[in-house]
């Protein structure tokens, strides 16, 4: 701003200047968000009403408006969409509490001081490196083809060990556990590898959160004579509640991007069926966001913010 301008009364107030600077800092993202994100979301909605062909000779696009045709096809005619959608949503809902509990449990365990803690932490974050997209897919394929060394699902383990798993399931069934709960636990055991692989980031976030709880709270609890169990429920969990919400969001989105329905959309798109693929993406994302919103709303009601 030059001196001349100031004389003309062009001078901005402190607040106005601040907002201009604020916008200057976020400008690249704002442009990108509006052009690419919002633009692409709008395009996605458009595409879901179109039948798109790409001309092989010229490479140009040919659009035909089909109205709700793609939606009708997805929900009435398509062979697997509804099935894949429900099973993906169920998978997300089943994995979510298990990943949260598991990562909470592990981070509580790793938060204590013991020898070799650094090594253990490094190992627990390793799945993030190994199972992320490209190489992870390759490794999975390799494991399927080779049947190497290590079996990580309970089914394989029992096959190798000659132990009848159904016997033990029967045993717990005789204890009059509700069958739904029993099924959930058996499912959890079967998914243990998936859960461990899916909780690397969450464990790190929880460890960081545990470190940020002020030590004075624990001192007070100790002086007042609280047991370790009481301290966990009255101090640790309430203080972690906001981070449990963060982790819930992260986990759900992460599960969604690796779910079958996204894969189905991807496959459909690779088969040049663009309109239908858009419908798949759009509906599955909407459903995920709805679920996410509901869960976060419910958790938020119980959350307690220290600051």
């Amino acid at each position: 701003m030059t001196v001349k301008e100031r004389k003309k009364g062009f001078r901005l107030s402190y607040e106005q200047r601040n907002s201009v600077r604020g916008y200057a800092f976020i400008l690249p993202w704002l442009i990108g968000f509006l052009v690419f994100y919002v633009g692409c979301l709008i395009q996605l909605v458009q595409f879901s009403f179109l039948d798109i062909k790409i001309d092989a000779a010229t490479g140009s696009r040919i659009d035909n408006f089909v109205g709700l045709g793609n939606y009708i096809e997805a929900f009435t005619a398509h062979a697997t969409f509804k099935q894949v959608l429900t099973s993906s949503v169920m998978d997300m809902l089943i994995d979510l509490p298990m990943i949260i509990f598991f990562s909470l449990f592990v981070s509580l365990m790793l938060n204590r001081k013991f020898k070799g803690r650094a090594v253990v932490r490094a190992i627990f974050f390793l799945p993030v490196i190994l199972s992320a997209d490209a190489v992870g897919a390759a490794i999975t394929r390799a494991m399927e083809l080779m049947n190497v060394g290590v079996s990580s699902t309970s089914q394989e383990m029992t096959m190798a060990g000659g132990v009848s798993v159904s016997y033990y399931i029967q045993l717990f069934g005789d204890l009059a556990l509700p069958p739904a709960l029993l099924e959930y636990i058996v499912g959890a055991v079967n998914r243990i590898a998936t859960i461990i692989k899916g909780s690397g980031v969450q464990i790190i976030l929880f460890i960081a959160a545990l470190q940020s709880i002020p030590g004075s709270l624990y001192e007070v609890a100790k002086i007042e004579g609280a047991t370790g169990y009481e301290t966990l429920w009255k101090v640790t969990i309430p203080m972690l509640m906001p981070h449990i919400i963060t982790n819930t969001i992260y986990t759900l989105v992460d599960r969604f991007t690796t779910s079958q329905v996204v894969q189905l959309a991807n496959e459909t798109y690779q088969r040049y069926n663009y309109g239908l693929s858009s419908v798949f993406s759009l509906t599955s994302t909407m459903i995920t966001i709805l679920i996410l919103g509901l869960i976060v709303y419910l958790l938020n009601k119980r959350a307690f913010y220290y600051n």
Partner: peptide, 10 residues
């Protein structure tokens, strides 16, 4: 919350 996968084709 909305992963890039959603807007893959656009």
């Amino acid at each position: 919350v909305v992963p890039l996968n959603t807007i893959q084709f656009p």
